[in-house]
Amino acid sequence: MFNELIDKLIIRVIFALFLCLIVVIYKYAHVFLYPSTKKQLLVRFYPSKNATDTLHLFSRIIGIGLILSEFSFYMSDGLFVALLDFFIQGTSVSFLFLLSIYIIESIVLYNFEYSDEILKRKNYPYAIISAAGAIGVAFVLKTIVHTAGNSMTLLLFIWPFAIVIMGFTCKAYSFYSDLPFNRLVIQQNMALSFSYLGYFWGWCLIVAQALNHSTANIQWYSIQAILKIILAIIISPILRKGVKLIFKIYDSEEKSETESVKKERTLYGPQLGHGVYEGALFLTSFYLTSIITGQIDFGSFYPV
């Protein structure tokens, strides 16, 4: 019995080292796909030197950690087979993760460059938006991996579908918020970063839940996912308005009633409080929407 315990402990250490190996593979894949990040990854990194760079890097590390946490090791067929399975799945999902970040950042931050915004200007909103993208994408990809199970075919079917939906949600930010995205990133306005963070993470939650159902009937899988997203679009304004009314939230910047507020906004951009409020409201309303879209079980209420 004691021998078994020691043995299991050694196997766990091996798996931990193997996980590090996968992260190493991810690191070199990242450099391959993003040559501009060579300095960030291949030389010694000083986190205190550039906080935006730290945020940018560690959001991806958190993302890869989030995705790899979905996998399991099955020892029934032996250690080598368990490691092989994990290697195949881990590396393929790491590549998909990098590809997803590249696509999402191309859609959201197409006007900006990493080297300019992070290395030269130390643009915090850019870093936060990039971090939000990385972690949000990782969360969705984790759900895709869970839904696809061990099937690479399903994974390669669901992944592009999910990326298309997320692309549309990124672009739809201007319908939900009146903050001018590109201008405020250039102005390094923090309000935008928190507003977008809440918005994007909220939508990632909705998309992940929309994708998380049975793939038994693949023909109807995508239609079911789209239906859940449409339902979320219909239901979320009710909850957003409800939260605002219940807590009697009134943001003068929303209505811009007075001339002085208008002038201040034009000069300095929206206040940080407005961004935090918007982001928190998005996140809360989408969290509550996810209950309505994914957690109502009609059971035998409709017996036929």
Partner: peptide
């Protein structure tokens, strides 16, 4: 827009296997 979206949702739902229901 929301009314239109609601109709789209109901329309697509009625074509899914779970939405079709008995005769």
């Amino acid at each position: 827009f929301y009314i239109f979206l609601t109709f789209i949702y109901l329309g697509i739902s009625s074509f899914t296997p779970s939405g079709k229901g008995p005769i």
